[in-house]
Amino acid sequence: MDRLQLERKQVWIYLLALLAGLLLGNAWPQIGPILERLLWPVLILLLYATFLQVPLLHLRVAVVDRRFVGLVLLGNFVLLPLLVWALLQWLPADPAIRLGVLLVLLVPCTDWFITFSQLGGGNVPRAIAVTPLNLLLQLLLLPAYLWLLADAEISVALSIVDMWPALLVIGLPLALAALSERWLDVHPAHAMWRERLAWWPVPLLAVVIVLIAATQVVAVRGALGLLPVLVPVFLAFLLFAALLAKLLARLSQLPTDQARTLAFSLGTRNSFLVLPFALALPAGWETVAVVIVLQSLVELFGMLFYLWWIPRRLFK
């Protein structure tokens, strides 16, 4: 099996991981504290392997094609936040549910959208080039979006005192990935290190899902009743994101391969990045992490549809 085949099958891997975690948590609830301690180092490894695939030190490459980059940024950081605000009106008043939706839908993906762009006939070099800009802007803008869109109860839960572990879990692998990229630029003979680590995100995310499901069994059970509310919201996001890409591509006369890449960028979200914030929240907010995992699963099934719809119907 090559890496592309592994990534094609990731949705089934994650579903099995979710089931395995629930069975583990039900059978041995006493191991919950041990699994919670394992979760943070696994997340650090996951984020490091993911960030290393992003050309963090090559922002200059991202802005070569200003039209394409401008559309990606307009869609991800101006128009989609407006869509998220509109979708928020259809959600129940539960602040944990709203926070989970805000966290996961406001940040564009910087990893598997490249894979889906490749599978869907998109422009992979441009997908790779724009990822560091997407990553940098989402880190800078997410606090502003939450301040604008979240209510007071959510703002209290996101206090800096509670969030410092999440900031460390994100900042440490980000810094290590940047240093590793610099080292690889100086020593290109070791580029195989990056290729080997490119295999890690799928199995590591599966481990993260197992650990979350096993330690949050009660929250997962409680979230089952939310499926009729959350799944339509996540599906609506996928639909409107693709239609938005179609509109932007038509208005700007974007080439077909770039238009497909734009659609995958707008449709995929960065659940890896926001999971640490969800897990750092105080007791009573466990639903936030469950919402993020649920969105990831819905998105992956949505990508299977995207891979048929985008190259064959939306952007032929």
Score class of each variant (00 low, 15 high):
Thr110Cys: 07
Trp285Gly: 00
Leu88Pro: 04
Gln138Ala: 08
Pro125Asp: 02
Arg37Ser: 11
Gln5Thr: 13
Val54Ala: 08
Lys316Ile: 00
Gly222Ser: 13
Arg312His: 15
Ser265Asn: 15
Gly267Cys: 12
Leu103Ala: 04
Ala166His: 08
Leu174Tyr: 01
Arg8Cys: 05
Leu158Trp: 09
Leu82Tyr: 10
Ile13Asp: 01
Ser296His: 09
Phe277Gln: 00
Ala242Trp: 14
Leu56Asn: 07
Leu307Phe: 05
Ile128Ala: 12
Leu294Glu: 00
Ala189Arg: 15
Val210Ala: 07
Val124Lys: 04
Leu23Ser: 11
Gly25Asn: 06
Leu35Gln: 08
Gly32Asp: 09
Ile170Ser: 01
Pro311Leu: 06
Leu226Gly: 06
Leu15Trp: 12
Met163Arg: 11
Trp12Phe: 15
Ala242Thr: 13
Gly171Asp: 04
Gly75Trp: 09
Ile128Asp: 01
Gln295His: 13
Ser271Arg: 03
Phe51Gln: 03
Gly171Leu: 05
Phe240Asp: 00
Leu133Phe: 11
Ala289Trp: 03
Ser159Arg: 14
Asn123Tyr: 12
Leu247Gln: 10
Asp2Glu: 10
Gly120Ser: 10
Gln216Asn: 14
Ile31Gln: 10
Ser252Val: 01
Leu105Ala: 04
Val293Ile: 15
Leu244Gln: 04
Leu106Cys: 01
Gly122Glu: 03
Leu140Asn: 08
Arg221Glu: 12
Trp40Asn: 01
Arg312Val: 02
